[in-house]
Design a protein around this nucleic acid. Structure first.
Lengths: 230, 230
DNA sequence: ACAAAAGTGTTTAGGTTACACCCATGA
DNA sequence: TCATGGGTGTAACCTAAACACTTTTGT
């Protein structure tokens, strides 16, 4: 079935940067392209927006088709539409950022179809198709800046986590060491964490206290900024 | 001439929030719709992206067609694509923010075609077509937040301006009074202004010193934030 | 001399930074 | 008892905030 319009229309796609936090490293999910253009290159997961489909819905659908992930954190990043960014024709991509913790990430691998999905550490990326290198740079910049004034970074952790785990997320994303005492003082002063009675078990050192984020829908930190010292 | 594709494609439009700063007030440019849907309602200026046209280019072209404004400050805001936002069919709009000072704004009115353009103060907006109320709220929020960590607000002023003029921009956009001494201390401590030898003339009070922004392409303030007291 | 806006400093409070040692557990 | 990461306090510094009067010009 063909679709005919009075004026030309660009293709409309969504692409998703899916970040995961595993073994103290920031990973990103890429798909190996099996067809031209950029055959054999790695690309961000994504696809075309369907008729009467909301942008976020399209991003969630594509993500679920590729990874079986549902209900994860997702937000719009930026729209790219330069002519020539896709050799097949004028294509506008509304890009998104999604975040998963390591448990969710393991579920993703299990449910994926046969396509060539792979997680890459942000430190060692392969060559990317299209303008996806630029998109990824944009996404990392957004993640870094939002880490400082939102609780976005908590999406990388399980519901219960230790302060050291939280600090490792901040250090890895911001790319610098943070003083342990200052980090704890600041995070605890925000009054967004509740200490739990339990502790991490089966470690061969003093077991760490577990915390959980209070205020499930807490997104923005009122007037406070999470800017940390080195 | 018809355009036929194998899969349906949404319409792709750009809409522009054009803010101006005139007589100590924040204004926004709207267009009265002459045809259905939303005939008689006011809407943001905008239009469809043409074939092989970059998004920013499309926004600049639409803006120039409506206002004859060229080379003004413009940045992408957000993309809206909910089905149902346009009764004519599935339409994705990549929205933008543009800023002009009062001299540029006066040029705009002169060059406009016969269409029903009007500047509205942000305090007294008419009913808006489509989801443009939501878009405008999103744009104002972006403007407010970027005022605090970029020099975006300087776009509202001429090349030479007084500190009081700058402060008025901040007060109007942020919607609160700022202490004069603290504002000046903070702005001057950023070392981004150069005091000029000239002063504002033909005022019936002590003439104010003129300043100019140094570093023409300065966009972000390294590590400093413009968060002001009440 | 008056009206009107320009311009200027100090004190206080609170947040940021730098920094080093003891604690609890499993092996 | 040793190795490993968990957990804690204080002092110096810096920035933000509150606050009122004098100066310069045109009329």
């Amino acid at each position: 079935m063909k679709h005919t319009y009075d004026f030309p229309r660009p293709m409309v796609a969504v692409d998703i940067i899916l970040f995961a936090w595993v073994d103290s490293r920031l990973l990103v999910l890429l798909v190996k392209r099996g067809a031209a253009p950029f055959r054999g290159y790695w690309a961000l997961p994504g696809g075309f927006v369907e008729e009467n489909e909301a942008l976020e819905q399209a991003a969630r659908r594509e993500l679920e088709e590729e990874t079986s992930l549902k209900g994860i954190y997702l937000e719009q990043l930026y729209s790219f539409g330069d002519p020539g960014r896709d050799p097949r024709g004028h294509a506008v991509s509304i890009t998104h950022i999604a975040l998963v913790n390591s448990a969710q990430m393991r579920g993703a691998a299990a449910g994926s179809d046969a396509s060539a999905l792979e997680w890459f550490p942000m430190k060692h990326l392969p060559r990317l198709a299209f303008d996806h290198k630029e998109i990824l740079a944009c996404g990392l910049a957004r993640l870094r800046s939002k880490l400082e004034y939102t609780t976005m970074g908590f999406q990388f952790l399980a519901r219960r986590f230790t302060l050291t785990e939280l600090q490792e997320v901040y250090e890895a994303v911001l790319g610098r060491k943070i003083d342990k005492r200052n980090f704890r003082k600041k995070i605890l002063s925000l009054k967004i964490l509740r200490a739990l009675p339990d502790r991490r078990e089966n470690v061969r050192h003093r077991p760490a206290r577990l915390y959980t984020l209070v205020g499930k829908r807490l997104a923005k930190l009122k007037n406070k900024r999470l800017v940390f010292s080195f």
